[in-house]
Design a protein around this nucleic acid. Structure first.
Lengths: 174, 174
DNA sequence: AAAAATTTTCCGAACGATCGGTAGGTTTTT
DNA sequence: AAAAACCTACCGATCGTTCGGAAAATTTTT
């Protein structure tokens, strides 16, 4: 589904990939739409557990923002970058499920916004539109899934470091 | 196709959208794959004309980078942000056509890389990985198509300005 | 200017294939 | 023996594509 998109992936394809027939697979899933929904929910559960929860306890907003980017990328690398590419496929869900996914996405974006706001209060931020900056940072992170592969010669550690610096120096005063 | 993806959009859908029957539409296109290919080529022709060509004459690399971001966004706004979302759908093309599209994309990325390199030579750049920074800038631009709508209350001008600043202060020394 | 010939545009009907999904039965595990 | 896992076989619908011909627009000939 990552490679060929929601519409381009048939249930038979998925069944074959897990070594089953269509009917066998249908014993485990409620339908194609619901399968995508479960995948998205599962992926976001992981982000909530490995990113959102841990950074809650970091007081210093600069350090927190740094960790948000770091942990998010680590999480993507560990769990498979590809899953980030499924996020736009939420358009194939029912409006209600779509809303649920979008809501959790906005929730995460809020995390970055809050960090930026606190930095602004401390006078550490450049003169910029916080909401736009927050989305740009998030797009930079998730955009990595669209181009990064190991055979670029770029190491994960290096990429994490560079991305953190990119996001911070784009927003922080110096 | 922007809304529902390549696989999720049938030829009937497209035909209906242009007020024709399937068979009537097929008089104008060579097939579904080729239609996508033509759309992508057409979109990239526009970028080449409105962005790549104009900035060739700008000597100063900082000014050039600024104009790349500005003109690219202006072009997206004028021609419809949505078309940027079709770029990832190139995966549904034949390998040969896919390669053609990717090549033109890399060509464009090279433009940013060169600007950054020249800035580095002038000692105006932060200590960073130029290739990674270039992709991050590009992802920030194209990422805008994924979230921006007029009803966010953000004006196009404001967004252009903020994005240019974001990209430059992420990479330039100050 | 009218008529004839030609080309372009479009449609109805159908094609084989595949789609998501289901019913009913068999095998495997508990 | 009960329950869970899985299969074969099939459903109606829709997929991308094609074909022969009608309708409309254009060009050529008279």
């Amino acid at each position: 589904m990552v490679k060929k998109g929601y519409g381009g992936t048939s249930i038979s394809d998925i069944a074959k990939a897990v070594g089953m027939t269509k009917a066998g697979l249908y014993h485990h899933i409620a339908g194609k739409q619901d399968l995508l929904f479960q995948i998205l929910q599962h992926a976001m559960d992981g982000v909530e557990r490995d990113v959102i929860e841990p950074v809650k306890q970091i007081e210093d907003p600069e350090e927190r923002l740094r960790e948000i980017i770091r942990l998010h990328l680590r999480r993507l690398f560990k769990n498979g970058l590809e899953f980030a590419l499924l996020f736009p496929e939420r358009r194939h869900l029912e409006p209600a499920q779509q809303e649920a996914v979008v809501q959790r996405g906005k929730n995460y974006l809020g995390l970055i916004c809050v960090a930026l706001c606190e930095l602004a209060d401390q006078g550490k931020l450049q003169d910029l539109d916080i909401n736009i900056a927050a989305v740009h940072i998030l797009q930079t992170i998730t955009g990595i899934a669209r181009w990064y592969t190991k055979d670029t010669g770029i190491s994960e550690d290096h990429l994490v470091e560079q991305t953190v610096n990119f996001g911070l120096s784009a927003t922080l005063k110096r």
